[in-house]
Design a protein around this nucleic acid. Structure first.
Lengths: 218, 218
DNA sequence: AAGTAACTGGGCTTGTCAACCCATAAACTT
DNA sequence: AAGTTTATGGGTTGACAAGCCCAGTTACTT
């Protein structure tokens, strides 16, 4: 069986659209009810497609979950984000980024769309681990790039470590999301994100010292 | 049926021991395989008890999961901890606390025993939410108490907010655990915890200023 | 000695759900 | 016109697991 091994099955524009529609629907359902509580039949009904369409684009459930993981990772990394905060290369952009997650009802109910998904799935299906690791890695790269740019432009001191700081922000977000979801209160998320932002401030160049850039950042 | 409504079914010492044994076994299995992937039969076999024993102590699966949640929350809050770090009322104690989670293989595989459990269960079973919230609250109280003690003893400045800082530490831990589990690398956890500890240092009283206590803390 | 709790080891029903197969038809590409 | 992709709508199978019932035995307590 050579066809099953080759995933390079080309899809037409229409097929791509249907597939994307199924993924979006599945992602929404899974975000609300969890993976284990979302059957293929649920997705099929919500998406308004036939059963054979599901098995056409996703031969088994794992492949669908994989697609949802990739979809959520894209969203986290800002790939198909509507808001214009593409690059986190200024401190103000990180503030905007953090604030974009506050005052949102869905956060209290479902936590992080990516984090809650992978947390549920990580133990039950080891074969999804690579997809999960890659999703985190892509997300981390977004922070790393922005923080490196801040350091190189003189907004942050030379001793600011983009790798360490990226982990600080990622953990503050994911942990804050989990705590907010668990307590049904956004205070943990707010405090964690503000803590990370305050911590970042400690890496600002000290005033009076000569710095390369005049730092017009907020 | 009056008996089912009254949960005050007294257990003998032996019964308590068996129940605890089942809970510990279930907690271990669930930590490795997740809730959905751990059947009652699995627990039964691993614990070496009969099927009726399970239904005797836990009429349904939810009650068993509830017991495991409480068990893991106890562990997180240091209730049945072997190591002597009962009170986190010194900065050094927080360092010890953080280090106790590093260099551990189980963390890379399973993440936080409490966090990964509640993350999996939170969406599938809404009735467990109160148990989860209470577990987080007990854990938070541990940090709050220690940080308040630090502030009151002059180890931290007056403007150090124990509530905010508690959330910072909790989020750093939970987020770091999730990231470490996802990346199979403890670096995210280490960076997140060290970030929180560094951030705490910024709340030390500045040298040269008069402080109430001489601050013999590390 | 009575009563109750702790325990064994089955079996049975019911439901859910993933995976699979079928016949058929419209739409698009070349 | 031929071939492929996209689609419909059902049916079936097999596995697994939760909840439940039953017929007993052992051990502790009072």
């Amino acid at each position: 069986m050579p066809t099953t091994d080759v995933p390079a099955r080309r899809l037409t524009t229409k097929g791509e659209a249907t597939r994307a529609h199924i993924v979006r629907t599945a992602a929404e359902l899974i975000y609300v009810k969890g993976v284990q509580n979302t059957s293929n039949e649920d997705v099929r009904k919500a998406a308004g497609v036939s059963g054979s369409q599901l098995s056409h684009y996703f031969p088994d459930k794992r492949s669908m979950v994989r697609a949802v993981i990739a979809y959520r990772a894209d969203a986290l990394s800002g790939l198909h984000r509507e808001a214009p905060l593409g690059e986190l290369d200024r401190v103000a952009a990180l503030h905007t980024w953090a604030e974009s997650y506050l005052n949102r009802a869905d956060v209290l109910a479902g936590g992080c769309a990516f984090g809650s998904l992978v947390a549920e799935v990580m133990k039950s299906d080891l074969e999804l681990h690579d997809d999960i690791a890659e999703g985190f890695e892509r997300w981390r790269e977004m922070f790393r790039r922005g923080l490196t740019a801040m350091r190189d432009s003189g907004v942050l001191r030379r001793d600011a470590d983009p790798d360490r700081l990226a982990h600080v922000f990622m953990a503050a977000y994911q942990g804050g999301m989990l705590l907010a979801q668990g307590a049904r209160d956004e205070a943990p998320l707010r405090d964690a994100l503000n803590g990370a932002l305050d911590y970042l401030e400690t890496f600002r160049p000290r005033r009076g010292r000569a710095v390369t850039a005049p730092s017009s950042d907020r």
